[in-house]
């Protein structure tokens, strides 16, 4: 068994099964079998998934619909976000 998405433990077979159900894009595969849903958000497996789609459907990689990129860039805690907000508010207050 070949693991393609290391964050979510998704194997190549599972990705092929999703393609057999009609998936033709990286986003559909992400939604069906969670490849690319983990903490790296698909940075590692995105290209591998595209290669598998390309191979299975005989589509040139350039024609595969590009995936969506979503914030944040890295996992970030609520605590940190709250602290950042507070810092910005203090800064805004200082300016006034």
């Amino acid at each position: 068994m070949k693991i393609i998405c290391r964050c979510q433990d998704v194997s190549e077979d599972e990705i092929i099964a999703a393609i057999r159900q009609g998936a033709t894009t990286i986003d559909e595969i992400r939604r069906l079998v969670r490849a690319g849903m983990g903490s790296c958000q698909g940075r590692t497996c995105r290209r591998l998934v595209a290669q598998i789609i390309s191979r299975e459907l005989k589509t040139p990689p350039a024609e595969i619909y590009p995936p969506t990129f979503r914030p944040p860039n890295r996992p970030v805690s609520f605590e940190l976000i709250m602290a950042e907000r507070e810092r910005q508010e203090t800064e805004d207050g200082d300016k006034k």
Binding site: M37, G38, S39, Q41, T68, R70, P71, P72, P75, V76, S77, F78, E79, I81, M82, R85
Partner: peptide
């Protein structure tokens, strides 16, 4: 992101170390 963090931690103060992976 700011607003959700504030509301969630108000209701769940002990879960403020949880990390956000993705928003949409």
């Amino acid at each position: 992101m700011y607003e959700m963090a504030q509301r969630f931690t108000r209701l769940f103060p002990k879960l403020d170390k949880l990390r956000i992976v993705r928003q949409w």
